[in-house]
Amino acid sequence: MGCFASTAKRQHPGYEDPVRLASQTAFSVSEVEALFELFKNISGSVIDDGLINKEEFQLALFKNQRKENLFANRIFDLFDVKKRGVIDFGDFVRALNVFHPNIPMEEKNDFSFKLYDMDGTGFIERKEVKQMLIALLGESEMRLSDEIIETILDKTFSDADANQDGKIDRAEWESFVTRNPSLMKIMTLPYLKDITTTFPSFVFNSEVDDLVT
């Protein structure tokens, strides 16, 4: 067996150079390194393999309550850009980048469209929205009859589906969220501006000399 003087970071199969990731995103090098501290916590919670699997992602989102959730699954699938069933560090940083306060609205709109277009047809269909509404009701105390669900869908589609073909295309979505900006609140995480103070231990593990930018 060979003996390698590798650091903990290089043992992570998806580890990417923070300088490179910072150049591709709204994050500074220090912020990418702070995100690595978060990534290590999540990716080591069940299997310490340097990758986040779906179970680890859900544990992190729901604070150690093991629960299956349609929406968390959907976010996971969008983070898992290589469709391997796991999220590596590069995937994690690039996906969180979309949620950075400094990222243009068009990118956030595009991500949210994909979030709701669950089967990837290029349209948000009424049946998908109904499925999501039912899933939401399943996770909350809210009880709504099928009639009320259909009324909510009628109202939503009369507002969003401009050509009334029963599905929302990208242009219709863009126009709808521009008129309803509160829908995009979930696409911005103010936390991403404070990650170096939330995870200060990155300083001890930094491989970059010049941390102060």
Binding site: L38, I42, A60, L61, F62, K63, N69, L70, F71, A72, N73, R74, I75, L96, F99, L115, Y116, V129, M132, L133, A135, L136, E139, S140, T151, I152, L153, K155, T156, D159, A160, N180, S182, L183, K185, I186, L189, Y191, I195, T198
Partner: peptide
């Protein structure tokens, strides 16, 4: 509330979309 008739406003309240939880220790 008008939001209650907007399916996406309701759906976006799911905990599964609350990525802020990842940052809370």
């Amino acid at each position: 509330r008008p939001e209650s008739m907007n399916a996406f406003a309701l759906i976006s309240r799911s905990q599964g979309f609350n990525l802020g939880n990842l940052f809370e220790k």
